[in-house]
Design a protein around this nucleic acid. Structure first.
Lengths: 221, 221
DNA sequence: TAATCCCTTACAGGATTCTGTAAGGGATTT
DNA sequence: AAATCCCTTACAGAATCCTGTAAGGGATTA
């Protein structure tokens, strides 16, 4: 089993619960709990310099802002710098995020080794995940695969660009003008209209307002 | 100190961490952990019938849906029925919710005794909260008071009703018609127009779309 | 080369939104 | 009682949204 593990989780209760699970159920000998991404990255760096690197990092994705200044503001940023510094580090993400496309991106872009959803079986799954990752396999919470089949549709860059401007209160004509001014293409009002209409169908929205609301609620934008 | 406590929290890690804190830091003798509101309410009911009632309930507000059928779907619903059944029960809410108006409503309407935000000092604050509540005082996480000063504006019931329908994609005329049909007043299209225009000013939104988007992002609706 | 498909663009008309003016009624103040 | 304030309601015009039709161009296929 892993001997040296760092845990990065800003909720004190969750942090404590995970720590207990890792030390008691999995007999991790050296567990370091951190509440900030920056501190966790420092731990990794120092340990690596001493030639006593951490073997596994368990991290959340979202970290609440508080009075402390910070460079790394999210788990994903932490993962990127940690991966760059120590490519062989095993990484398991433990988060509330349940959007399959985001999770897929973490596996593909950031080469994480496991993903566990916070939930009623979070600790049971985490134990499984650590065991799987220890044996060089990957782990994904089962409920995630189910939802992956549902919403296979993805917003592309053009969709996101339009939606971002609409969310800021621009009219479609203003979006078109802005795109033209910035030499982004396609940019005609008609094409933008068409794109949005397609999104209405895909998300079963009746108009721009309900579309943006739904997407915001689902955390897609 | 309290002897008999029920903890209601659906995240396994968080549940475990809180349980450890309550039993070790506060020496609670009889702690019952639950992951569903319905089960927690049953515990309370049975204990009361046996004349061995619980003294304190620590509960979350949001509970994830899963395969299990449920009557009580939120902490607030649990609190209402628990209060009705056992008025002297002490209740501490431990949640991510950081909207001061929601928390105020919990104190006023549901007579909760303490409110602790999940966060980096969640367990420290929970220990304080339990101590305060044990001595018949109330407790609120300090960071909540700070944010309370910021956004003094509140959405009233009429605002919320309008926004809910707009979010579903209804036009203002349809909202007006629906209100008339349901004998809700005021209901004229003009008045609804006026209300929404006022919200534009208050939330610095340019149109319905940006208004709904902003409110959704801030979690106000 | 011709046929086909898909994306982009233009235009147009009916529905809806946004904003302003104005009138009426209830509550409070003077 | 009169004045004032606030909320509700009506109406109207300009801007914007939504949807449909249609045309042009690039890429792929026959």
């Amino acid at each position: 089993m892993f001997k040296k593990v760092v845990l990065v989780e800003d909720f004190q209760g969750e942090n404590q619960g995970i720590a207990e699970t890792l030390t008691e159920k999995l007999a991790i000998e050296e567990l370091q709990s951190e509440f900030y991404c920056d501190k966790a990255f420092n731990r990794l760096k120092v340990a690596l310099k001493k030639n006593e690197p951490y073997e596994l990092m368990v991290t959340d994705l979202f970290f609440e802002k508080d009075h402390v200044d910070r460079k790394l503001t999210s788990g994903q940023e932490l993962i990127k710098v940690a991966r760059a510094q120590q490519p062989e580090l095993k990484i398991i993400v433990h988060s509330m995020e349940n959007n399959p496309s985001h999770v897929n991106a973490l596996f593909k872009e950031d080469k994480i080794n496991g993903y566990v959803c916070k939930g009623r079986r979070g600790m049971v799954e985490l134990v499984n995940a650590v065991n799987e990752v220890f044996h060089n396999r990957t782990f994904v919470s089962p409920q995630l695969n189910l939802t992956a089949a549902n919403n296979s549709f993805e917003l592309d860059a053009f969709d996101r660009a339009i939606l971002k401007e609409l969310a800021n209160g621009l009219t479609k004509k203003e979006v078109s003008d802005k795109f033209k001014k910035e030499n982004r293409t396609p940019n005609s009002e008609s094409t933008i209209d068409k794109r949005i209409s397609k999104l209405y169908d895909e998300y079963k929205a009746k108009n721009t307002t309900s579309l943006l609301f739904k997407l915001a609620k689902e955390g897609k934008i």
